[in-house]
């Protein structure tokens, strides 16, 4: 008997006669709509990320400002990122992922700019889904600085609403603040292997 058959047979023998289980789903499947954007901003800030809440028309200026403050000149720009977001930063050198950027090139970049698939207010989470303007996973991992533009309508109040919006067939990365560790005396310290600086622009 193969291990597969053996394991399945053991499982069947182990649970034979056990009663079926009903799953109660009495938890909230929607969160509070009121204060959604403010809550998201506040909770992303709790993770020591930099957050700007601006009207959609000011995204380009805010992005340009953030990049110049950071001194970011060589920026990874994933395919499908709205052109207008970078319209106020013409001098920034764009690194495009075609042909795919090597790890060394990504490492040498000053940062990466992306959009996102969905964001969660209650947990201050941004989810990247490798869709347009998000790029493959390494693009937002290797550079030390991640600038992310989140649109008002992408922010859902709660985790269940985010899960429902996402497509599991795509690789997803849920990001809640900059890279951090709790490994030293169980206290959160920001900045390990992922981007150590996360800056979020919320476009209303």
């Amino acid at each position: 008997m193969s291990s597969r058959e053996q394991i399945l047979a053991r499982v069947r023998a182990a649970v034979a006669g056990a009663p079926e289980v009903r799953i109660p789903r009495d938890y909230r499947t929607t969160g509070a709509e009121a204060g959604r954007v403010e809550r998201f901003a506040e909770r992303v800030r709790d993770y020591k990320a930099v957050v700007h809440v601006v009207p959609a028309a000011e995204v380009a200026a805010t992005v340009a400002d953030a990049l110049s403050r950071r001194g970011a000149r060589r920026l990874v720009v994933p395919d499908g990122l709205p052109e207008r977001w970078l319209s106020a930063a013409p001098s920034v050198e764009r690194l495009v992922d075609d042909p795919p950027l090597t790890a060394a090139l990504l490492d040498a970049a000053d940062g990466v700019i992306t959009g996102c698939a969905v964001a969660v207010a209650e947990t201050g989470t941004i989810v990247l889904g490798t869709g347009p303007g998000q790029g493959r996973r390494a693009l937002t991992l290797v550079p030390d600085y991640h600038l992310c533009v989140v649109l008002d309508e992408q922010i859902v109040p709660s985790v269940p609403e985010a899960v429902a919006r996402l497509d599991p067939a795509r690789p997803l990365t849920w990001i809640s603040g900059p890279s951090a560790t709790s490994d030293i005396e169980l206290n959160r310290v920001e900045g390990v292997h992922g981007p150590r600086t996360l800056e979020v622009v919320i476009a209303l």
Partner: peptide
Amino acid sequence: ERMNPYTSTWTGAVE
């Protein structure tokens, strides 16, 4: 934490 910094999900062979 409300959420851990990173959660990765993937399905099969990707990228």
